[in-house]
């Protein structure tokens, strides 16, 4: 398979890239890791007139934690960079748990977190993680930069809130106020398959009491599901078997799974419940490894 014809540009500066997108007038696509876009081009689900390859833009491959605890992930930071990160395991455990579960090793070498957010696949991993962490996406256009909360960034399956002349340059996770903990669990039939179900859980605790919580679900609805009620059930309490059970039940209720070849709706709902329990129990009893 091969894509239909397009004009290809590889700008050296972000301003040049934005100017090209303006020139493209809605018929241009940004190419970063390309692990979703290139297959779409080959299947001709996408046939842009202009491809703006941002891989030559300098200084976008970073992931850093600011002194105040804010985590920033640049548009060219690959999944593999996050998988090998030395800062994430302690500073952003939910992200550290998700990185090795994205796609397969070769895709992780090319694909990017920001690109995955832009692709807005309901079965994508990072949208749930960034939603659970209350993150946002920084978009840059000719008029400057703006921040778009993750909940508003994804506007539908495979649709995002970017203007046609904007580039998502960074994903930002706000600084945790308490001690961060959490995890990401994914059920897939084999490595690289779309998630049957995946669950991201992020909690922040102060003196054992949960001060902030986020739970988001992958693969059990038309888009990433932000299980707000389930997360709220944890806030203000220590993690106990009861609060964990309540959150798990509420998350299962928030899921909108469909029966398909990957499993029945009821089975998927049960997996959501189990994963929430498993992650939070693992957080609570770090000595007993969540399996």
């Amino acid at each position: 398979m091969y894509p239909s014809r397009f004009r290809y540009e590889s700008p050296r500066s972000i301003d040049e890239a934005i100017a090209l997108l303006q020139e493209g007038g809605g018929e241009a696509k940004v190419l970063a890791g390309g692990q979703s876009l290139v297959p779409l081009l080959k299947l001709r689900f996408a046939a842009p007139e202009l491809l703006v390859d941002i891989n030559d833009l300098p200084g976008l491959g970073y992931h850093t934690v600011d002194p105040d605890g804010t985590t920033r992930i640049g548009a060219l930071c690959r999944h593999a960079d996050l998988e090998r990160s030395t800062v994430l395991p302690t500073r952003q455990p939910t992200m550290a748990a998700a990185a090795p579960l994205v796609a397969d090793p070769m895709v992780r070498n090319r694909g990017t977190l920001v690109g995955s957010l832009c692709h807005a696949d309901p079965q994508g991993d990072w949208a749930s993680v960034v939603t659970a962490l209350g993150g946002h996406v920084v978009a840059q256009g000719a008029g400057g930069r703006r921040s778009i909360p993750m909940a508003q960034f994804v506007t539908g399956p495979f649709q995002n809130a970017l203007g046609y002349d904007e580039i998502a340059v960074e994903a930002v996770i706000p600084a945790p106020h308490g001690k961060p903990a959490g995890g990401y669990l994914k059920l897939e039939r084999r490595v690289g398959d779309f998630a049957t179900v995946a669950v991201a859980v992020a909690v922040e605790r102060s003196h054992s009491v949960v001060t902030r919580a986020g739970i988001a679900l992958t693969g059990v609805g038309g888009a990433t599901i932000n299980a707000v009620e389930a997360a709220q059930a944890l806030v203000g309490h220590p993690l106990t078997a009861r609060t964990i059970g309540d959150a798990a039940d509420l998350a299962a209720r928030a899921a909108q799974p469909r029966t398909d070849h990957r499993g029945s709706a009821e089975y998927k709902r049960q997996v959501v419940r189990t994963f929430v329990k498993r992650i939070l129990t693992g957080v609570n009893e770090p000595t007993r490894k969540a399996a």
Binding site: S10, L31, V38, D53, A80, M106, V107, N109, R110
Partner: peptide
């Protein structure tokens, strides 16, 4: 799979110009 600057990548999912 080929190695691109030493890293394994899927050459069917990358443009030659890249």
């Amino acid at each position: 799979t080929v190695l691109l600057d030493g890293q394994p990548v899927k050459s069917c999912t990358m443009l030659a110009v890249q």
